[in-house]
């Protein structure tokens, strides 16, 4: 599955899913966000059982605020509606998979 563009409008629908969710808060001007973008896409392609979404913090200030984003890239893992893991900064594929599976 490909990476979903998450907005304020479709967030509730995604949030209530019973699948594991990975959210990638990013911006176009952020170098480390661009570093991890291909990895996030790869994880989405290889793991159709997860919902992988990306949130542009410049376009979605309400969502960014509700997750108290103050540094990006911020990765957030949500299981059964609860945040189980979150971490700031660029990471390797394995580190991201570990975050999801933790």
């Amino acid at each position: 599955m490909s990476v979903i563009n998450v907005s304020y409008e479709n967030f509730n629908e995604i949030k209530n899913s019973n699948k594991t969710i990975l959210l990638d808060f990013y911006a176009d001007w952020c170098g480390h966000c661009r570093v991890i973008a291909p990895t996030i896409e790869q994880i989405a392609d290889e793991n159709p059982n997860y919902i992988i979404g990306k949130i542009n913090v410049d376009n979605e200030p309400e969502l960014a605020q509700s997750f108290e984003v103050s540094s990006i890239p911020l990765l957030v893992v949500i299981k059964d509606g609860k945040i189980t893991n979150q971490s700031v900064g660029a990471k390797t594929k394995q580190q991201i998979l570990d975050m999801i599976e933790d």
Partner: peptide, 11 residues
Amino acid sequence: IGKGIHYCAHC
């Protein structure tokens, strides 16, 4: 880090 501690103002 990322919760108020930062090393890159431009970021």
